[in-house]
């Protein structure tokens, strides 16, 4: 049987909050399980996911976030410590649902062979050094992303 080329999934991760870091990692690891080839392109705040020990430090902000599971008025959400409180509550909810942590999913993605690509330009602009990021990354620019996408990749952006 001839091996057909694997379907591809390309995901852009440009946010550094807990809620926006989950979908890229869930979809990428799921894609590999579906016999697809997956790549996540980390740019802007998404680079925070790749910082050593950074994935499990990401937070979710209650300020200007009307969709929090426990609604927090902005006048309360702006108080010092409220982001940490909201983050703690949300992490506990995910733990109760037996969901993997972001750090666990990132490690799993690496183990499964997901291409983890750090955007060199935004790293330079934001002053992020390679040694600040986890091992096993690829570094590239828009051509790296587009070349991967050009081979019939399904694309997602977060």
């Amino acid at each position: 049987m001839t091996e057909e080329r694997k379907k591809r999934v390309a995901i852009i991760a440009s946010h550094g909050t807990l809620d926006m870091a989950y979908p890229p990692l869930l979809i990428a690891t799921g894609a590999v399980a579906m016999d697809m080839e997956a790549s996540i392109y980390f740019t802007f705040y998404g680079l925070q996911i790749l910082k050593k020990g950074g994935a499990d430090k990401l937070q979710v902000a209650p300020l200007a976030n009307p969709a929090m599971p426990m609604p927090v008025p902005n006048i309360v959400g702006m108080l010092p410590g409220m982001t940490a409180v909201a983050t703690g509550i949300m992490k506990n909810m995910f733990k109760s649902a037996n969901a993997a942590s972001l750090g666990e999913l990132l490690e799993l993605a690496r183990e499964l062979g997901v291409h983890l690509v750090a955007c060199q330009m935004t790293m330079d602009a934001l002053g992020i050094k390679r040694e600040e990021l986890i091992d096993g990354l690829e570094y590239g620019g828009v051509a790296t992303l587009l070349e991967f996408c050009s081979q019939d990749a399904i694309t997602f952006a977060f």
């Binding site: 869930l26 690891t29 799921g30 590999v32 399980a33 579906m34 649902a97 037996n98 969901a99 993997a100």
Partner: peptide
């Protein structure tokens, strides 16, 4: 006890 996507993985 495992949540998505762990069962398929």
């Amino acid at each position: 006890g495992l949540a998505c996507p762990m069962p398929i993985i």
